[in-house]
Amino acid sequence: MSEPTRGPKGRVEIKSEECKGCGTCVELCPQDVLLLGNDLNRMGYRAVTYKGDGCTGCGICFYACPEPGALSVYKIKDKALA
């Protein structure tokens, strides 16, 4: 994020219908790139959203998230493809 020319190191995928908006991932993300959205999902929760860049693919949000399938994190190894 600090040096955008090097390309993203990771990305996070959010299934907003599975998210319950507990905010644990927002709290624990070391890069501070997650935040609760303003829209309500089908269950009536404000699902988390990704700011769009800055994810390093560390996986902390994945383990912090109590929903088994709501968050997926992918490290991007080949920067040229990114």
Partner: peptide
């Protein structure tokens, strides 16, 4: 149904993940 029955922020889901 794709989400668990646990409340938002419940620790069960985390531990389910570790076990699985």
């Amino acid at each position: 149904q794709v989400s668990t029955h646990y409340c938002p922020g419940c620790g069960h889901g985390n531990v389910h993940k570790f076990v699985a």
